[in-house]
């Protein structure tokens, strides 16, 4: 009787876990391991079996200039994107948090880019940023500014992608930061008002410190996302002009699925993984210096 019941319990557990375990083993853990082994080979998939190379894919990538260029481009993106995104998202979150009439409508508007696919969004922005016939340079022209060549210019291509990304993301990060704002105990503000604190002092001394865990989370997520830029680059610039917007995932995609260099692409993807891992670990380590947890 006892063993029958135990068997029944194991059967139940296996039944319930089977679909996800199948996915976990065959589409997550095994590929993770095999990706590493593929990265040690030269393999074009078409002409047969992989040729073992050792770590030379990694060495070639690290010695070539392409990897460092993608890293530089990504850093250029991060430096422009993160501060501007935080500034706008914080404003959006504060708007969400106010109780004026019509905020539901504004919220709905801010989410539209979030629910739009990146492909559609990138197509729109490719056209908006068109130097002669696009919306942005036309508007700049109204106020007497001659807009840059955006996606056709090595220096301005990445800022163009940054603008598109901010447009796409502020609704989402605004929502996350808004949730953080709602977690702040209103009595802090009441006490500050009694003490005669102005808007800036309240923001600086109450909101920022108490929101810092949420801001920290937003930065972690957005930096991970920044290392994984793909659709906006693929659709808007294909990495150009002259490699000015080449980024890691775009390179991995091209090496694997256009040039069929599976080993090289896998090595590239492992470097991406390691970078994300260490950048995130580093941020977790230094968070103590600026993130305040309300206890």
């Amino acid at each position: 009787m006892m063993s029958f019941r135990r068997n029944k319990k194991s059967f139940t557990i296996i039944f319930f876990l089977l679909p996800s375990l199948f996915g976990l083993i065959f589409f997550s853990l095994t590929p993770m391991v095999s990706s590493f082994f593929i990265s040690l080979t030269d393999w074009d998939v078409i002409s047969g079996s992989p040729k073992f190379l050792g770590f030379s894919n990694f060495i070639n990538i690290l010695q070539g200039e392409e990897f460092w260029r993608t890293l530089k481009n990504t850093l250029y993106f991060i430096v422009l994107y993160i501060p501007l995104m935080l500034l706008v998202s914080l404003s959006v979150a504060n708007l969400f948090n106010s109780k004026y009439k019509g905020i539901t409508m504004y919220r709905a508007i801010y989410y539209i880019p979030v629910i739009t696919s990146w492909v559609a969004g990138a197509l729109i922005w490719k056209w908006v940023l068109n130097p002669q016939h696009g919306a942005i340079n036309t508007i700049l022209g109204y106020i007497g500014i001659e807009g840059p060549g955006w996606l056709y210019n090595e220096i301005w291509a990445m800022p163009g992608i940054v603008l598109a990304s901010i447009w796409k993301d502020v609704g989402f990060f605004g929502l996350i930061l808004f949730a953080g704002l709602q977690g702040i105990n209103p009595t802090y503000y009441e006490a500050a008002e009694i003490d005669g604190a102005n808007w800036w002092q309240k923001f600086r001394k109450i909101t920022l410190p108490l929101l810092s865990p949420t801001i920290f989370f937003v930065i972690i997520i957005s930096i991970i996302n920044s290392f994984q830029l793909f659709p906006q680059v693929m659709i808007m610039t294909e990495g150009g002009p002259h490699g000015a917007t080449q980024v890691m995932v775009e390179r991995i995609y091209k090496y694997a699925f256009e040039y069929y260099k599976m080993g090289y692409a896998s090595a590239f993807s492992w470097l991406l993984f390691l970078i994300i891992f260490f950048v995130t670990a580093f941020q977790l380590k230094i968070q103590k210096s600026w993130v305040k947890y309300d206890t």
């Binding site: 319930f16 589409f27 599976m262 993807s269």
Partner: peptide
């Protein structure tokens, strides 16, 4: 449903959240 090793398996599930899709996509494609 409690059973021995449950937390370890669950931790394994959670660990996969750290694997970027770009690493698994090549073997999955193959």
């Amino acid at each position: 449903i409690e059973f021995k090793g449950r937390e370890k398996i669950f931790a394994l599930y959670l660990a996969t959240m750290m694997i970027p899709g770009q690493v698994t996509m090549i073997p999955n494609f193959l």
